[in-house]
Design a protein around this nucleic acid. Structure first.
Length: 865
RNA sequence: GCCGGAGUGGCGGAAUUGGUAGACGCAAGGGACUUAAAAUCCCUCGCAGCUUGCUGUGUACGAGUUCGAGUCUCGUCUCCGGCACCA
């Protein structure tokens, strides 16, 4: 590697330079245009992985670019530091979660700095520190006051392996999102945040998320899941009560042939119903393979046509949605159809297709769920079913047997976790006073450190007498502390606001005073607060895996912030970039499962000699043995190369296939840049372009003009590519093209040297956000004094970027037949004339009659004959 | 099943409002330098055919609109992602 540049030396040099000068700190001047660039903060698991590298490289380019564009840039970083792995490590290695976590943070912070990321570390937040989680507790109290935090007994998702409760969002295919264990149902007393209070608003807000990827917005909408319908009461025969159901299909009410209630519906306990059968259904809950149920022995009356219909218990009816009871219309609902077929329940058609020519009534094989005309539906017969919906709802409301209703799939957010390493919930239980919140001035409730980690399940907090025993804040009597901690998603639901405030004052008039690092209280009703200055986040960057969980919770919390008068906007993230995964090819052998590439010789497993099958490229993961270690790469190629490759190999939102050879390519490019600049440092001493450049242009040799033009075109292209959807890959490609032209350019006279210098200077400026260290170093080498980032982003001259000659494409009947260079700006008629004079074209046309000639100015002529 | 997104060389990927398909990079082949290798530099590179410069063909498949379609419309297939008994 003889003449390669010493990246290690220069990268450390500039990292020191930036750090010593506080280069990445924000300016405390509220009159400046701000740009808040945020990447999802990592969980301090030990080391950073390639996904982090990609995420943070993308964010760093944006932050540095905006800095060069003159924005006051907030680019912070922190640690999502509470969570289960720390506790598991404690059990396994007998090390306290705090120690484990902070050591990991130290290591990872060094790694991030080694990448040359432009973070303002003064604003670093660590969620497991009391200065941070105090405010989680403060939020809890506020939500409790607002009636948005409450406790209730409910069936919850229970992961037996993690010994904790999971939110609905954390259950994937009936399995724990973290450990893949089958999740069961367990009845527990839990704290909930009433996110459903904002269901309508969160849904409406989706329309404002124009800076988000469409599919993420769609996923949020689906998750909130609004449906409009009607609730109707069906009187139970021989009983003084009604069964209330919810339906979105009031138009099918006349086709009801049975009813279904959830196994956990209150009626199943109140009425005399076969309990063992219910138990059986509940046991299989969550893992049901087919529709099952049984007849309760009771009947209900359809209030619309007074028909008597049987009531079933059915496993597919959810207690948590609607009323926990449904009307069943097998003719027009596939699910009901299957249930009816299985249990021999009659099917009654009430909607027929408008085109009745087919035999719609005979041998129905599936439910008819499309539009049509109502039949056998009393006064509503003959109506279009869609129109009938509204009328039937009105009829129901007029008769007082039900009312129009909106339902959401979104459930309240269960935040209780039976774990140690999280924020203690600031509540005590008093025999006399019941649930008593910890008063605000007693915060934070500190997580005790002197606990043991046995690993036998259950929270270690239960064993800490000092923590557990407490005086009631109301009556002074004996009380017990809540031992559950909060879901760690609470921590990440507002950290973006914490960054804003960590540094304190924004301007002198502000009444905001930061007596402690994150004082949310001081910002209440202060429109000049730093939160209001920096929020919302202008660009948020992270993985698609948070499309519902974290992003939805953050939107919820930001609404609470707004209600508290802390923040003035309801939406936290203006623009969202969801970067793709980092993938790599995999290898597997029949005996030894997944293999590291080193374990494959030729196409044979080195352990057993068996044939190795090349697996698909998959997301890098330890289990697939296809990870590459960022430390190793930085050691071998330097941070600039890794960053450049991660940005060049694919557009940010797409998956990136890792390629060792591709990294070599990026490295080659930077080395080429290095040698070309160094080769030319002497000639560059004669450097400035003449003032009257344009008038001199005609005296320059064509190559010189061409390089000048290329430089201006590249500035235009790179700027547009970054501004428009962050197309870094094509921006880098354009810079490569420019460097190719610079390298083949021969300098003969002073103006050549000046133009070449101009091209190099701008190449460095444009490469700076991508590969900041080498850019700084070469910037210095060509004689510039200040940091390259203090220089503004280059601007192009539209005149100089204009092509002199353009290639005119001549088509005959849409087929490419000739190309020739013509001066730019020729008129239609001139272009036409030139095209018709090309010998080859006249030959092709021959004596055919020309029917039409289409001219696209400066591009092509199409002769139709 | 429903809702999204995507299909372009050996590979990653480029292609403004429809206007030269394959930018840039990787891999491959050839050459220069070298005792040799590495590094570097130069040339070739969608496929097929031959007269080596041209002709034909080509963006998952089939139609259509258009002077002209990777791009627009309809249909089909495949892949990926999300939701999945939500009444």
């Amino acid at each position: 590697m003889g003449n390669r540049y010493n990246f290690n030396e220069i990268e450390l040099k500039w990292q020191r330079y930036w750090a010593q000068r506080g280069f990445h700190q924000t300016k405390k001047d509220a009159s400046l245009k701000k740009f808040y660039c945020l990447e999802m903060f990592p969980y301090p698991s030990g080391k950073i992985h390639m996904g982090h590298v990609r995420n943070y490289a993308i964010g760093d380019v944006i932050a540095r670019y905006k800095l060069m564009r003159g924005f006051n840039v907030l680019h912070p970083m922190g640690w999502d530091a509470f969570g289960l792995p720390a506790e598991n490590a404690a059990i396994k290695n007998n090390v306290h979660p705090a120690k484990w976590t902070y050591e990991n943070i130290d290591y990872m912070k060094r790694q991030l700095n080694r990448m040359g990321l432009s973070y303002d570390w003064n604003r670093e937040v660590t969620t497991c520190s009391p200065e941070y989680y105090k405010w989680n507790q403060w939020f809890f109290l506020k939500l409790y006051e607002m009636g948005l935090a409450y406790k209730k007994a409910s069936y919850v998702n229970w992961c037996p392996s993690c010994a904790t409760v999971l939110a609905n969002e954390q259950v994937i295919d009936d399995k724990c999102w973290r450990c893949d264990s089958i999740v069961s149902q367990k009845e527990l007393e839990q704290w909930f945040f009433k996110i459903t209070h904002y269901a309508e608003d969160l849904l409406k807000g989706c329309d404002e998320l124009s800076g988000w990827p469409e599919r993420v917005v769609m996923m949020q909408k689906n998750w909130i899941g609004k449906s409009k319908g009607v609730e109707v009461d069906f009187p139970i025969v021989g009983y003084d009560e009604s069964l209330r159901i919810f339906t979105t299909r009031p138009d099918t009410l006349f086709g009801v042939t049975f009813m279904c209630i959830a196994p956990m519906h209150p009626f199943t306990k109140r009425l005399d119903i076969n309990q063992p059968q219910i138990e059986q259904i509940i046991a299989k809950y969550g893992r049901m393979e087919e529709k099952e149920g049984f007849f309760t022995g009771y009947y209900a009356v359809n209030p619309l046509n007074n028909e008597k219909v049987p009531i079933y218990v059915a496993n597919f009816v959810l207690m948590e949605y609607g009323t926990g009871a449904i009307m069943s219309v097998p003719a027009h609902d596939q699910r009901d159809f299957e249930f009816a077929a299985k249990y021999g329940i009659p099917i009654k058609t009430v909607i027929i297709p408008e085109d009745v020519s087919e035999d719609w009534r005979d041998g129905l094989k599936a439910a008819y769920e499309d539009e049509g005309i109502l039949v056998d539906s009393g006064d509503f017969s003959g109506l279009n079913n869609d129109m009938a919906k509204g009328r039937i709802i009105r009829y129901i409301e007029d008769r007082g047997i039900g009312k129009g209703m909106v339902n959401f799939k979104l459930r309240d957010w269960g935040i209780s976790r039976q774990r140690y390493w999280g924020t203690p919930i600031p509540i005590v239980y008093c025999k006399r006073c019941g649930i008593v919140p910890v008063p605000e001035n007693e915060l934070p409730v500190i997580l005790p450190e002197d606990v043991r980690f046995s690993g036998t399940g259950g929270s270690p907090l239960l064993e800490s007498e000092a923590f557990l025993k407490v005086k009631c804040y109301k009556c002074g009597g004996y009380a017990r502390r809540e031992t559950d901690t909060m879901d760690t998603f609470v921590d990440s639901s507002w950290y973006f606001a914490a960054y804003c405030i960590k540094e304190g004052f924004q301007d002198e008039d502000s009444k905001e005073k930061t007596y402690e690092p994150i004082d949310l209280k001081s910002t209440i009703n202060n429109e000049h607060s730093s939160i209001n200055y920096w929020m919302p986040v202008d660009q948020y960057i992270g993985g698609i895996e948070h499309a519902v969980l974290h992003l939805l919770y953050s939107r919820f919390f930001t609404r609470v912030l707004k209600e508290l008068g802390i923040n003035s906007t309801a939406e936290p993230f203006l623009n969202l970039l969801t970067q793709g995964m980092v993938c790599k090819e995999t290898y597997r052998c029949a005996k030894h499962e997944w293999l590291f590439p080193e374990e494959v010789k030729g196409s044979v497993c080195i352990h057993c000699g068996g044939m190795v099958e090349k697996g698909r490229t998959e997301k890098m993961s330890k289990s697939r043995k296809n990870v590459v270690d960022p430390d190793m790469l930085i050691q071998r190629y330097g941070a600039d190369t890794i960053r450049l490759f991660a940005l060049f190999a694919a557009p940010p939102e797409r998956d990136l296939e890792w390629s060792d050879k591709g990294v070599e390519g990026a490295s080659r490019f930077l080395n080429r840049l290095w040698t070309i600049v160094h080769k030319n440092i002497k000639p560059f001493e004669k450097k400035s372009l003449p003032e009257n450049l344009r008038s001199l242009l005609s005296s320059f040799k064509p190559e010189t003009v061409s390089l000048l033009r290329k430089a201006h075109q590249t500035i235009r292209k790179v700027t547009n590519d970054i501004d428009k959807d962050y197309h870094f890959n094509t921006a880098i490609a354009a810079l490569m093209e420019l460097l190719n032209e610079i390298s083949s350019f021969e300098m003969i006279n002073d103006e050549d040297r000046a133009v070449s210098h101009f091209a190099v200077k701008n190449t460095l400026l444009m490469i700076a956000p991508f590969a900041p260290h080498i850019a700084e170093e070469l910037w210095e080498a060509i004689g510039e004094r200040n940091s390259i980032f203090q220089h503004g982003w280059p601007v192009w001259d539209e005149e100089l970027a204009k092509d002199e000659d353009v290639e005119l494409v001549i088509q005959v009947n849409g087929k490419l037949r000739a190309k020739l260079l013509i001066p730019a700006g020729l008129s239609y008629d001139e272009a036409k004339k030139i095209a018709l004079e090309v010998p080859k074209i006249t030959e092709i046309i021959g004596d055919k009659e020309i029917k039409n000639i289409v001219v696209v100015k400066g591009r092509l002529v199409n002769i139709v004959c």
